[in-house]
């Protein structure tokens, strides 16, 4: 119990620190904070479905970002072929990726559910690579960019200018977070999923269909990430290896928050996103921003192994 209360204290300290940091940045460079929040939301919304899979199915999906990449290509293809607003691609993407999730689960995930962690990691690594190379073969490695006029809209308040479309990511992060929380707390399947996440054998004993729960959680998460891929394609370039850094950053957030801690992901993505924005804003240091997540993950691992030793 002591350790739990200590952890709580530390979390409160982290939150307090984040608020103080935010106030300072807001006073000095408000656009950095705004940009950081938008960036954080994107990280959070990508990490949430990965955390769901890891927390309940117990598998690290190293192909996570690559599913997002597929979603982005789908949005691009949809917009070019139909001439409609790419935002509309979200609905078919959600359905398509739910199906892709079901297929992937039965073909690849289910066979390795009981086997060693190493096999699961290697398998999803191989899957990610196959997806990347398939995209490479069918679309070449050249970046594609959608031109949607309202995406580059910006708002000026006083001498502060910021992009408005990016708030879609903030909205998406909040929406996905609440949907997942409500789903896990209020619905029958969600409660079953939490039980399976905590103790698969126990859940089986009380009559929960564990495999069905895994299937639903996995497909749902893939559906979410595929749909986010559509949103991502609206603002960013689309290319085969675009997903890989997001897989890494998502894992970084999960490692910092701890497996099963969905709320923590929001806080730590704020930390990651705002730190990256600050570093990007420093002249001449922008290139180093890509190292932030690595420093954070190594820091998280060091703290964790220190805690383990103390225990």
């Amino acid at each position: 119990m002591q350790i739990v209360s200590k952890l709580r204290e530390r979390r409160y300290q982290a939150i307090l620190g984040a608020i103080i940091m935010a106030v300072i940045i807001l006073a000095v460079k408000p656009e950095v904070l705004l940009e950081g929040i938008q960036r954080s939301s994107l990280y959070a919304v990508i990490a949430l479905p990965m955390a769901l899979i890891l927390g309940i199915v117990g598998i690290i999906n190293l192909a996570h970002g690559d599913f997002m990449m597929l979603g982005s290509y789908m949005a691009y293809w949809f917009a070019v072929k139909s001439g409609l607003d790419p935002l509309l691609a979200m609905i078919p993407a959600m359905l398509a990726f739910f199906l892709i999730g079901i297929l992937t689960f039965y073909a690849l995930i289910k066979p390795v559910l009981g086997s060693q962690e190493l096999n699961q990691l290697l398998l999803t690594f191989g899957l990610g690579l196959v997806l990347e190379e398939a995209a490479n073969l069918s679309f070449t490695s050249a970046p594609l960019k959608l031109s949607v006029p309202y995406v580059s809209a910006s708002l000026t308040i006083g001498d502060l200018t910021f992009g408005t479309f990016e708030f879609v990511y903030v909205l998406a992060a909040m929406l996905v977070f609440y949907i997942i929380s409500l789903f896990l707390k209020k619905t029958r399947i969600g409660r079953a999923a939490r039980a399976v996440g905590q103790n698969p054998k126990g859940a089986k004993l009380v009559g929960i269909d564990v495999n069905k729960t895994y299937l639903i959680i996995f497909s749902l998460s893939i559906a979410i990430i595929g749909t986010i891929g559509v949103l991502f394609a609206m603002r960013h370039s689309v290319f085969p290896v675009m997903g890989a850094p997001y897989t890494m950053k998502s894992f970084c957030l999960i490692a910092m928050a701890g497996i099963g801690n969905i709320t923590g992901i929001l806080w730590y993505s704020a930390l990651l996103g705002v730190s990256e924005s600050i570093i990007t804003a420093i002249p001449g240091a922008a290139g180093w921003a890509d190292l932030v997540f690595f420093a954070l993950i190594v820091g998280a691992i060091l703290i964790r192994s220190y805690q383990q030793r103390v225990k």
């Binding site: 190493l118 890494m248 993950i297 192994s305």
Partner: peptide, 20 residues
């Protein structure tokens, strides 16, 4: 820094290594 913890942390760190 990393080998004290479970294998997944080490695996992911090495996955990021080339890029870093």
């Amino acid at each position: 820094a990393t080998l004290r913890l479970r294998g997944i942390y080490f695996a992911i760190i090495t996955l990021a290594m080339a890029e870093i």
